[in-house]
Design a protein around this nucleic acid. Sequence first.
DNA 1: CTTGACCCCGTACTATGGTACGGAACCTAT
DNA 2: ATAGGTTCCGTACCATAGTACGGGGTCAAG
Lengths: 137, 137
Amino acid sequence: MLTRGMPEMVGSMTIGELATAGSVGVETIRFYQRKHLLRTPVRGGGIRHYDETDLRRLRFIRQAQTAGFTLEVIRELLDLDAGEDRSRARKLATTRIKALDDKIADLQRARDALRRLARECAEGSTGPCPILASFDV
Amino acid sequence: MLTRGMPEMVGSMTIGELATAGSVGVETIRFYQRKHLLRTPVRGGGIRHYDETDLRRLRFIRQAQTAGFTLEVIRELLDLDAGEDRSRARKLATTRIKALDDKIADLQRARDALRRLARECAEGSTGPCPILASFDV
DNA sequence: CTTGACCCCGTACTATGGTACGGAACCTAT
DNA sequence: ATAGGTTCCGTACCATAGTACGGGGTCAAG
């Protein structure tokens, strides 16, 4: 028989199963619901049921966070997904692409500084590493 | 005459001048002092004076933050700069280099997803953008 | 028909990195 | 000497993104 915990029931998950599938905690799901990033399904006898769509949204949220969007903006993106406002979505995307390019460049510079530090710190075996100096660019 | 506000006096700044030179707010300096990231100089008549070393430390803090170090770890790095523990410094650096490489890869993936979104959102002029879909990788 | 695992709900608390506020003291130019 | 701009100090507050807690309800298996 098909019950809550079984893979065949992917179309009907409990909050715990959704959380596991999305690699987040149950409390995080509830938090996203409070923030209206995920819907709060009507209860079928005390317990709520979630489906593939909820999981897709959840995964999207995590991806979008990686991209540096705040939960606030992610909510807007989710709303936009259903709407007609193509230019708004494009604008959010291009703004973020620019921010990501800048951020990537920053991180690459930081990484290069750290590589220099690690190298200078490895040469010679006495005295302090020139930690502050290695960041003076 | 040489006074506080003048460039010639870089070796003796007030907190406000230090803040300006480091592109941070005065409150941020005080915050860093409370966290022991910056020293709290002894007062010469009610007002504290800062020098080039303080500015170097402040700039280092901001660089290190860009590199993703927490203030906690930055404090350790600052302590290490004066000490003899080369291996600890090297370890912190290499750990962070790895984290940065991972982060850079994440951001590049996110950027590529957004580029795809912007492109797909630009083609055709009606209907919603496939926002969620563009992140399904 | 009880037990154990899971769910619901509201509220409170956490970490990180600041930012703001209010009153007193100080410093410099007029 | 007085007005203004800073500084000092402690305390309080903020945003973001969760995480924890406690008390009660539900559900499926044994």
